[in-house]
Structures are given as structure tokens and as C-alpha cells.
Design a protein around this nucleic acid. Structure first.
Length: 216
DNA sequence: AAAACGGGGGC
DNA sequence: GCCCCAGTTTT
């Protein structure tokens, strides 16, 4: 698939009604605009489906909308609030430490560079890239399982590993569209282009897809 | 039982 | 790069 067709895919997905049925859409409205809440929500979403993550994010942010309020909670309280997201105990530990680090080393603000974000507890390459794109509007790509699978199905890349997918996407897609990739492709993956049985007949971008009807 | 989920950390 | 960690939901 050429770059031009892929940009058509992104534009079409942006306008598609199926996007508003996707859990990730509720994820974006459930958290407020602040970089801190975006960081917290993104950290919670790791290895957990958005349908489970959204209520947990709302419970936690209702009590701890700022680093100061989060730092005031003990680990067990945080763990109870975010249950049952995956790795909830590890995440509770990270969140507790994260609040302290933000206050002590960053003046209570979320840093806006990849290097600084990656140094935060519980924040790796993917989480950092999502925060860069969504909280600060910087060009960044996070290749999760949805983005990896669908990029290959559409034919914009041809790669075995997420890292290789990321390289190829950055090479073929202009930076201005990078942040769009995450939202659009994840939403499509959650609604019609799942890993087992893609629902190609109702797919809004099937006219551009190189593997209509073919799983994996 | 196994796959899947918007991975992270240590080495 | 590789290996280990750790929880729930869906298939």
C-alpha cells in the first residue's frame, strides 16, 4: 500500500461512525485534558483492554487528579481503586513512586521529552510515545499489537516485529500523521479488525486493504 | 487451556 | 537483544 492510500485510510477512519463505538473513544473522553491524567490513564492501559481500563481510570482520577493527591494515597488504596486492571499491584507501586518523582524532580509537572518520560517508573517506550503524542501534540508512534497487526494487514508495512513496524511507519508516513495512527488503528482493531476474525464486510476501509477476508 | 490485552524492567 | 514478570477477560 502506498503512503497516499494509507493517508486516505486514516482520514476515512477519522470520519467513520465505528470509531465512536470503540472503547478507546471512551478512554479519550474519560480522562481530562491534563498531561498528568493522560499519563496515568496510559500507564493503567498497559496489557489491559480499554473496557476494563476506563472505569479504573475514572475511579482513580476522581480521588487523585493531581500528583500531590496521588502521592497522598498509600499503595494498597491505589491498588484497590485500579483493580482489576492487569498488573494492578505493580502499577500501584509504580504510580506511588511516579507521583513522588514528578513532584521532587519535575516540579509536579509531566516532562515532555522521550528521555525524561522513559525514566519515570512504569513508563517505557510505548507509554512515553503515547503521552508525547496525546498530551503534548508531538509526532510519536506507539506500535501496540493493534497497530502492528493492522499495519501489516493493510499492507502499509511488512514486518515481523513491532519495532520494525515502527521504523517502517516512520519512514513511509509523514510525522504530522503519526499521532493519528494510534487512535485510528487501535479503534479499528477494537471494533472490526480483531486478531481472530476480522469483520471485513463492515470495514470502512476495505477498499484499500490488501488482505480483505484474510486473518493474520 | 490458550490467546489477547494500547508493556515494563533488568541484564 | 533476550528473558522474566504478572492479572484479567475473551475465545
Amino acid at each position: 500500500m502506498e503512503t497516499k492510500a494509507f493517508l486516505q485510510v486514516l482520514r476515512t477512519l477519522r470520519r467513520s461512525p465505528v470509531l465512536r463505538q470503540a472503547p478507546i473513544f471512551r478512554m479519550q473522553v474519560s480522562r481530562s485534558e491534563s498531561p498528568f491524567t493522560i499519563l496515568v490513564a496510559t500507564l493503567l492501559s498497559a496489557r489491559t483492554q480499554d473496557t476494563v481500563t476506563v472505569p479504573a481510570v475514572e475511579r482513580l482520577l476522581a480521588v487523585a487528579p493531581t500528583p500531590e493527591r496521588l502521592a497522598a494515597l498509600d499503595e494498597d488504596t491505589i491498588a484497590r481503586l485500579i483493580y482489576p486492571v492487569g498488573f494492578y499491584r505493580t502499577k500501584a507501586r509504580h504510580l506511588k513512586k511516579l507521583a513522588r518523582v514528578l513532584i521532587e524532580r519535575h516540579g509536579g509537572r509531566v516532562p515532555d521529552t522521550l528521555a525524561e518520560l522513559t525514566r519515570l517508573p512504569g513508563v517505557g517506550r510505548k507509554t512515553a510515545n503515547l503521552v508525547l503524542g496525546e498530551a503534548f501534540g508531538k509526532p510519536a508512534i506507539c506500535v501496540d499489537t493493534h497497530v502492528h497487526r493492522i499495519s501489516n494487514r493493510l499492507g502499509i508495512v511488512r514486518s515481523k516485529t513491532p519495532l520494525e513496524t515502527e521504523r517502517q511507519l516512520m519512514e513511509k508516513v509523514p510525522p504530522a500523521y503519526w499521532s493519528d495512527i494510534n487512535f485510528c488503528l487501535v479503534a479499528l482493531g477494537q471494533t472490526v479488525c480483531g486478531p481472530r476474525k476480522p469483520r471485513c464486510p463492515v470495514c470502512p476501509v476495505r477498499r484499500w486493504c490488501e488482505r480483505v477476508g484474510v486473518a493474520r
